[in-house]
Design a protein around this nucleic acid. Structure first.
Lengths: 339, 339
DNA sequence: TGACACGTTCGAAACGTTTAGATTAGCGTT
DNA sequence: AACGCTAATCTAAACGTTTCGAACGTGTCA
């Protein structure tokens, strides 16, 4: 900017005023300055600007896994929203690990992000302190956090799983296997409640041996399913509470020589583009990814334009059961489905 | 830092020296400073540091679509690599649009990223100028760029498609439909050459009506497949040069009342976790995503540690044909497969 | 005892902006 | 001719670091 100022024979203040439109500058100087900018190929240094202004127009976004299609879709929506608003997005994957998450968040705060959207991992960590310091606004995505009172957008997980399991029950299934992620994050906790309540509402017992948990990865789903299928009285249906794990479920079913839905019905959380193309077409709980991403972005953008001390807002969206053909009616009870 | 210095009754220079280890500071002062840092909860301002040092320890990464599993996987690997090296990653999606890409890159450069990894879109744009200015090192990912001479890591697309199509020919297929993305990006161009050469090598004619192109999305694959299947003499196999488009292909096959592989064989580019779980299990060309991501990160990191004026390096990796059961042998010629 | 080296610490300039407040010029009033 | 007003421009002080070179105290050697 100094060079531009010299070339245009004006002060840096005038150049700055012109660039920011913070004061009127005469047509003549405007012309000289613009010419100088073109000649020199000047680009304003956003770092210096950030230092002075105290804002970076950058936000941080952390997700557990970027390869999980649910997060991919949401990230994509969020990125677009902030792009439109002139913000850049720094993306971090915490790999479902609390220490990594803390480190990533520190990295982002070091870089003075203006705000944070976090699909958190584990409980505790530095998140609580950050929200309480209230220097940067934080929006929780997909997962709430015990004791952290801030904006959030989540799914009604309990209801969604309740509906899905109830659907399985209506099909005549009585022993329904349930595969969950680690229960220390709110969606897994809520989904589990939905599962139990659906059984109870139908007067069915909750058999603990039908409940398995794993660490969100395909291999965990595989192992859990193997265990379920080796049970003496094996389940006739399995609900998998997470997308990557259902792949493991399908592989286990195949490897053990069974087939879906003939031998065992399968439903799972999170929809994906392939679901209705391949066989079996999976019955899933679809999350409104577009809405989730947009709402999260809106909540944060609202804070960024200055609405700092409004009370925390919590948005709860509804999932949708996408009924396809991976679950079959069971025996005599099949009639009750149409009822 | 000023506050810390005051609290510890030392100068800011000493605090800085301690924090960076650039000079020895006595045990006594070390102790006082560390105490003050803890008391105040001081965090170094990375923006001010960047301004002074001229480096942000942040890199920019642009991809056409983050929902395409190939890019998702690569992004994930790259993110991990830079994370390990203490760099943050700013991610941008260009949505396969040149203007968006230019805007995103400008955004990243404004923020003084230390380097850029670009899965480019379109030709031209500001990329060329940036590489020539040579202020920030640029690594091209997946796609080369006419006239832009810089580090790059790409697949041997031509060979990969040659192998896949040759496989189809060995199965006895003579009329093989080919669905490509817009041909102005190098992989699509190279893949097309691979297709043509495979046919020619087998002495088969290249029928132009069997070649369709679209804009990378599912719907484009759907439309292209519909056209192919409506041909008087329709193909017995289809190769789709991109992952999202093959979903469209499968939907079109289903909607038209055919099935794969009984009525029509399908193979495509890019592998994904689902490929061998559902029916049909898709025969695909798998890219070495891990290697691609790591190599791209390494190339850039190497430039960042100062190796600035080594000549541009171009890494070409090999794809792998994952033979599953979405392609069936055709009639009498089937015998020749085992040969 | 003075000169010198060495290890520690500090003062101050610089990085490239923004911005409050000072300055200047032009112009109409009285 | 002196005055005030407005609009345009400038000067200089921040923002929070890093870093160069100076300063200081202490011990060693001639």
């Amino acid at each position: 900017m100094l060079h531009v100022a010299e070339a245009a024979r004006v002060s840096v203040a005038t150049v700055s005023a012109l660039l920011n439109g913070t004061a009127t500058v005469s047509p003549e100087l405007t012309q000289r300055i613009e010419q100088a900018i073109r000649d020199i190929g000047y680009k304003r240094n956003a770092i210096a600007r950030s230092l002075k202004m105290g804002t970076t127009r950058t936000i941080g976004l952390t997700v557990p896994h970027i390869t999980n299609p649910f997060f991919t879709d949401v990230v994509s929506v969020i990125q677009q929203a902030f792009d439109r608003a002139g913000y850049a997005v720094m993306l971090c994957c915490t790999d479902e690990d609390l220490n990594t998450q803390d480190e990533q968040i520190r990295l982002l705060l070091d870089r003075m992000v203006d705000g944070l959207i976090v699909a958190r991992v584990g409980d505790g960590g530095i998140l609580k302190g950050i929200v309480e310091d209230a220097n940067v606004p934080v929006v929780l995505l997909d997962r709430l956090c015990e004791g952290v009172d801030t904006d959030a957008v989540v799914l009604d997980n309990q209801r969604a799983v309740f509906d899905a399991v109830t659907y399985l029950i209506h099909l005549g299934h009585r022993r329904i296997g349930y595969i969950t992620g680690t229960s220390d994050i709110s969606p897994m906790h809520d989904r589990m409640i939905g599962y139990r309540e659906a059984l109870q509402a139908a007067g069915l017992p909750v058999a603990e041996e039908l409940i398995r948990s794993g660490n969100f990865h395909e291999i965990d789903g595989y192992n859990a399913t193997m265990q379920l299928l080796s049970l003496h009285d094996r389940p006739s249906a399995i609900f998998s509470a997470n997308n990557p794990m259902v792949i493991g479920t399908m592989k286990a079913i195949r490897d053990i020589g069974l087939s879906c839905p003939e031998d065992i019905s399968v439903a799972c959380f999170d929809d994906f583009p392939w679901s209705d193309v391949f066989v079996p077409q999976l019955t899933t709980v679809a999350q409104p990814v577009q809405a989730i991403g947009e709402q999260a972005a809106n909540l944060l953008l609202d804070r960024l334009v200055g609405n700092r001390d409004a009370p925390p807002r919590k948005l709860v969206l509804k999932g949708r059961l996408m009924i396809r053909n991976s679950c079959r009616p069971l025996g005599a009870v099949a009639q009750s489905v149409s009822a």
